[in-house]
Design a protein around this nucleic acid. Sequence first.
RNA 1: GGCGCCGUACCCAAAUGGCUAAGGGAGCGGAUUGCAAAUCCGCGAUUACCGGUUCGAGUCCGGUCGGCGCCUCCA
Length: 511
Amino acid sequence: MNTLRVYNTLSKTKEPLETVRPGNVGIYLCGPTVYKEAHIGHMVGPVIFDAIKRYLTYCGYDVTWVVNITDIDDKIIEQSRQRNLPMAQIAEEMTQDYLKNLASFGVDQIDHMPRATETMGEIVAFIQDLIDKGFAYESAGDVFFDVTRDSDYGKLSNRSADSQQGEGGGAAAKKRSPGDFALWKSAKAGEPSWESPWGAGRPGWHIECSAMSRNLLGETFDIHGGGLDLVFPHHENEIAQSECRHGKPMAKYWMHNGLMRASTAAGKVGGRGDRDGEEQATTDTKISRSKGAGGLASLVERQGGERLRFFLLRTHYRSTIVFSEEAVAEAGAGLDTFYRFFERYERLTGERFYDLQPIARRSEGEIDAGDDPLLGQVNEHRDSFLSKMDDDFNTGAAMSDLFELVRTLNKHAQTIEDAGSPNADQLVTFTRGVLTLRELSAIFGLFRQPPATSAKAESELAGKLLDLLVELRTFARSKKDFAMADKIRDGLTSLGVTLEDRKDGTQWRIE
RNA sequence: GGCGCCGUACCCAAAUGGCUAAGGGAGCGGAUUGCAAAUCCGCGAUUACCGGUUCGAGUCCGGUCGGCGCCUCCA
């Protein structure tokens, strides 16, 4: 098994992946608080970890991936008031929205999605044990974690416990130290609540993750992930709770993805932008739900889930991604290279790329190339791709090998086409090379099915009309009536239809 | 104020201190084409700036300038 290296926020270095149990990997990713629709930024973690799980599985690990749903929270209660609906209904609605978005982005590798409301027994037991062990205390119906009892506190985010101000407001008066955080919050009148030894209330924000990860992955598991913004206080407090209770490390590797920002045109009210020409002021602002980002469903409708997924995987997961639809469209131009190649593959072999069964295991993908130049090159691209994935899942770098692989295959396709009648040996080698493209792109979760064309609505009738126009143009060309042929083509171009004249006929494509 | 990140070509973006600084998009040449499209080939970088360490620096250290994150809810 190859050595995988993983960047660990705890040590601030890349470390070799050595799992708790050989051959197994447990991953816990902090999921959403379901109080409003998800935005594109919420998809970064799920997409990268989806690719990570695919890669680990491909490398032979048995992976268990948990993503929690936080369905109790002050913000959900607030929404529930504003919309005059029960908290559970809001949570359920937004959970469904989240699941729908995951599906659009091709995230289907999650094994467990526990909810806080379904983990209440374990949460209460967890808190009680912390009290019994002297790490937590009750104060007027609330329970707080006592950060002064945890000598390690702050090790993840590099902060000292006594420098923390903590949340203010009414809770502050009940705390022993300002940095103490709530494990259990007593319910005010009218708030949803659960029974506990400390009275009716609800869990604090961090405790559910400690309880759920312990339940599903054990006291020490392999990888804990989340957005960079969760390092403090959320993950710091999870560590405090879990490690004080268990007396052992919570997770071996802490992986944090970079946050997304939105590129928005800044004001420039008054509309005189001509003086400095193209210089347009833009600011990158944080994407947050409170600032009204959203419309993920319509974004998916416009761009397609695969483009968005590709856009996210283009950049290293720890980097900031600046979001704009222009950038997504640009990424899409790169994706089109693959789609066109798949059509070419189908023309040459009569087989659909999407019907190729991807090679599912790394140990089975190596090609015995012999002295075949094509397969030798394919192997090189594959090795390069895998070595980049081995180095902290560098999808952005590995992407280049996908492009180089498709270029190599395009060249081979060209020689086959130029030869006129394809010979069987060439096709066999070609198909074997294409199978490697299938294998590697499957690690990214790409090209699992043909891109949806619904948005472009190429109805049956439109297709037939296009076929008819192409036929008329072919007739004109055969008569050397290029003026007519070009008129038809230009007209179609202006409608967003591109024509390609090939030896074997003309093909149309809706851009 | 405390902790931390980033600055690579027109745009996006990769690069354990070591060969000509990946790849994509846009653009410009060329092959191909009736002309296009697609594909292939080719073209493009004082790595923000200044200094230091080193045989060797995009990478390490110090400084300057610029952008950003966390410290309160965040993926």
